[in-house]
């Protein structure tokens, strides 16, 4: 059954006809030709389709487009216009996190990358709001993005799979942008498995 909805994608308003069965991901990719959101599994098991939906990181494969009439979506193609970004939507400008991905080679094939970028931006915003994670020791302690260590970043980003294994560079990039203590060269600092302790 076709129905008409309005989506704002990367600052641009679209009136689009979708089938009630059309997922938000397919509405973006197949109906609006917005292919920055990637389809890796189509079942919420990889994170490649992550966008910022109404400001929060969100999968687009497990939700129907018709349920998002009027919503605002930002993909990795549009994050440079966000606060902290370069402030315009020229294709040459990048969000600082994207610059950091490049500097740390936090990507290889690039297919999971837009999802990683959106997820990281949303994740840092969650941290800013004080959200704890599975590896947060003290649930009552306040959380600050700059205080997130490697294990915190890894845990919070685990919904974004990368088969090329660019994880180290991604964590480095995120920590650089989060403003925490800079990491040196290789991600070779000892991990803290006790933190995770079969939690």
């Amino acid at each position: 059954m076709d129905t008409s909805i309005t989506l704002t994608v990367d600052g641009r308003r679209h009136d689009v006809v979708v089938d009630t069965r059309t997922t938000l991901l397919d509405a973006l990719r197949e109906r609006l030709a917005v292919t920055s959101a990637k389809k890796g599994c189509d079942h919420g098991q990889c994170g490649s389709c992550t966008v910022l939906l109404e400001g929060r990181r969100h999968l687009t494969c497990l939700t129907l487009a018709v349920a998002h009439d009027g919503d605002e979506i930002v993909t990795a193609a549009g994050v440079s216009a966000l606060e902290g970004g370069a402030g315009d939507d020229a294709p040459t400008s990048l969000h600082p996190l994207q610059e950091a991905f490049l500097a740390h080679d936090g990507l290889q094939c690039g297919y999971c990358t837009p999802g990683q970028v959106c997820s990281a931006i949303g994740m840092l915003d969650e941290a800013k709001q004080g959200h704890p994670s599975h590896v947060t020791d003290d649930l009552e302690e306040s959380v600050d993005p700059a205080d997130l260590d490697d294990d915190e970043v890894r845990e919070r980003m685990s919904g974004n799979l990368c088969r090329c294994g660019a994880y180290g560079g991604i964590v480095d990039a995120i920590r650089e942008v989060a403003g925490g203590a800079p990491r040196e060269g290789q991600p070779d600092r000892p991990a803290q498995p006790e933190r995770e302790a079969a939690r």
Partner: peptide, 29 residues
């Protein structure tokens, strides 16, 4: 630095199911 990194971090790099050039618009699925 990876020369095609910018296209990848923005998602503007186009993979096999994402092409609309060469008269590939409006495909059958």
């Amino acid at each position: 630095e990876r020369v095609d990194g910018r296209e990848k971090v923005t998602g503007l790099a186009t993979y096999a199911a994402e092409h609309r050039d060469l008269q590939l618009d409006d495909p059958l699925h």
